[in-house]
């Protein structure tokens, strides 16, 4: 009889090893960003309607004003974090070829972060009048 190589139970070994190789963190973050995104999306739509038909100088001034800029920053961060998780789930559901899955998962992170930080950069630029 050889001794078992480890004393961890099977449950402990598989725990947290789903298709994403992680536990329930993404599930929870998707819910938190979903809850945050509802009021932030409503606020962003109100802001966009307020800015319709205005010229560039007025749009830049209003978008860069503190309250509007902070709401838009929160909105952008919340939705890009949320959509990164959502697209990750879609990729994990439909792409079963591991190398392609890896490429798509990394591309997804790149896309969400690039869009998010580009928007944050634009808003900060307007806010600081650079």
């Amino acid at each position: 009889m050889t001794a078992p190589r480890h004393i961890r139970t099977p449950l402990a070994r598989v725990r947290g090893f789903g298709a994403a190789r992680s536990g329930t963190d993404t599930f929870w973050h998707q819910r938190v960003t979903a809850v945050a995104s509802v009021p932030l999306t409503i606020a962003a739509i109100v802001i966009m309607i307020m800015l319709l038909g205005r010229n560039q100088a007025a749009v830049a001034q209003i978008l860069g004003s503190p309250l509007v800029a902070i709401i838009m920053l929160l909105f952008v961060v919340s939705i890009t974090a949320h959509m990164r998780i959502g697209m990750q789930v879609i990729i994990e559901d439909y792409v079963h070829h591991d190398p392609l899955k890896l490429v798509l998962l990394v591309s997804n992170s790149f896309f969400a972060i690039i869009v998010g930080l580009t928007s944050v950069y634009g808003l900060l630029k307007l806010s600081f009048g650079l």
């Binding site: 560039q56 580009t118 928007s119 630029k125 307007l126």
Partner: peptide
């Protein structure tokens, strides 16, 4: 719609950054 919104954020980023100049 989630996937569509994902790509729609390109328009959002474009609009925000376009506001910097006439």
């Amino acid at each position: 719609t989630g996937a569509a919104n994902y790509f729609g954020t390109i328009l959002l980023a474009w609009w925000i950054n376009a506001a910097a100049g006439p």
